[in-house]
Amino acid sequence: MNNHMELVNGLRVITRFYDAQRRAVCRRVGISQMEFDILVFLHNNPGRDTARDIVALRGLPKSNVSQAVEVLMGKGLLARSQDAEDRRRVRLSLTEAAGQLMPQLLEAQQTFWEQAFRDFSPQDAECFAALYGRIVKNLSEKGGNGNE
């Protein structure tokens, strides 16, 4: 990589392709991209089932997550319950209706991964993951979490 613009433009290409995959399925099933992110997050992260978890781990704005959770509940795709040990904590869970949507949502993710890594060997993919993890760690240590 010769300069920072190659990195920035590469990240834009990745983001645009992933967004296009999400947009297509969102239109088909009648949900927003934020709603997609929340449903897929809850499916892919068992035990990380609070709005706070979504905000912290996905880096999404709290107000947007709260609003999308309400919409998903109204659509019958999410349920909430109080934590048995801490009544202040509200747990979110996918409903049966959400479970029926998940194959389509996960297919969009899978299409992204297959295209992004189509000519990677397993070793290449592992190397990329390790290097990417180091980049994220380096930038996170410098306060590069986007929340300044």
Rank of each mutant, 00 (worst) to 15 (best):
K137V: 01
M102A: 01
A84M: 11
L7Q: 11
I31V: 15
D86C: 04
R118G: 00
I54G: 01
V25K: 04
D19K: 14
F17M: 07
Q104V: 02
I54W: 01
P122Y: 00
R22Y: 03
N44P: 03
Q109L: 07
A97R: 14
F41Y: 15
I38D: 06
Y132S: 01
G10D: 01
E126P: 01
D83H: 12
R23F: 02
W113M: 12
S81H: 12
G144N: 06
R89K: 15
R91A: 06
P122S: 10
I14K: 08
A98I: 04
R22Q: 15
G10P: 08
C127M: 13
L72I: 01
V13Y: 01
R58K: 14
V55C: 10
A79T: 13
F41K: 07
Q100M: 11
A51V: 07
E126G: 07
M73N: 06
A98P: 02
L11A: 14
D19S: 14
F36R: 01
P61R: 11
E35Q: 15
V29C: 08
L78E: 08
I38M: 03
Q123S: 14
G143I: 05
L105G: 05
Q115F: 12
G74R: 09
L94D: 07
G99S: 06
Q109N: 14
G146V: 01
L106V: 08
D83F: 02
